[in-house]
């Protein structure tokens, strides 16, 4: 077999061999950046993280939240769709029956172990009631203990301002039987 060998011309031209023109071109570029950044920080792309955050898309899958109805109760009907679909098996729901007929079932406890969550968003897609969403924009969760990552129902639920349609406030949300898991997080993570 015969191979065709293509000879690439690698001989230096005079301009290359002198180095100086090449260095001058390089210096032109680095100096332009240098002076622009020293004088006005025009090209600087650094995001100084804890103080500044990088803008995230509205579709970014961040920390979960549980949405509320107009009347203030949770939208979730404890259908276990999300728990079933979750590939990481990190949602744990306990259903309860609400005295109000129009509400029927509701989650007595709704825990998400955010350490196990793989942020796939399947729970959001599975939910028939749009009760769970991941659009909080919280992209960095860093706490000191394992327990802090166990987000309970009351930490996940949205903030709700009472209005004329209100029938239920935060205080009316029936407490889960296990009071311990409903306690506000000891690390002061605010419920949304």
């Amino acid at each position: 077999m015969k191979f065709k060998v293509k000879k690439v011309d690698r001989s230096e031209g005079l301009k290359e061999a002198l180095y100086i023109p090449g260095i001058a071109v390089g210096l032109k570029h680095t100096m332009r950046h240098f002076f622009r950044n020293i004088i006005s920080k025009k090209d600087v792309v650094t995001i100084q993280y804890p103080e500044e955050e990088r803008p995230v898309s509205r579709r970014w899958r961040g920390r979960h939240r549980l949405t509320r109805r107009d009347d203030g109760f949770l939208k979730c009907v404890a259908c276990y769709m999300c728990e079933t679909v979750c590939p990481a098996k990190c949602i744990h729901i306990e259903a309860g029956e609400h005295p109000d007929f129009s509400v029927e079932k509701y989650p007595v406890s709704f825990d998400i172990d955010e350490l196990r969550c793989v942020f796939c968003g399947l729970c959001v897609e599975a939910c028939p009631k749009q009760a769970i969403r991941m659009d909080t924009g919280v992209i960095g969760m860093a706490y000191h203990s394992r327990e802090s990552f166990n987000f309970t129902r009351d930490l996940l639920r949205d903030a709700y301002t009472p209005n004329e349609k209100t029938k239920y406030t935060d205080a009316d949300l029936p407490k889960p039987p296990d009071q311990q898991s409903a306690l506000p997080n000891s690390h002061g993570i605010p419920a949304l």
């Binding site: 680095t30 950046h33 240098f34 950044n37 920080k41 600087v44 650094t46």
Partner: peptide, 10 residues
């Protein structure tokens, strides 16, 4: 600092 300025960093 200066190398940062050259490379568009802080």
């Amino acid at each position: 600092k200066w190398s940062a300025a050259v490379q568009d960093r802080i």
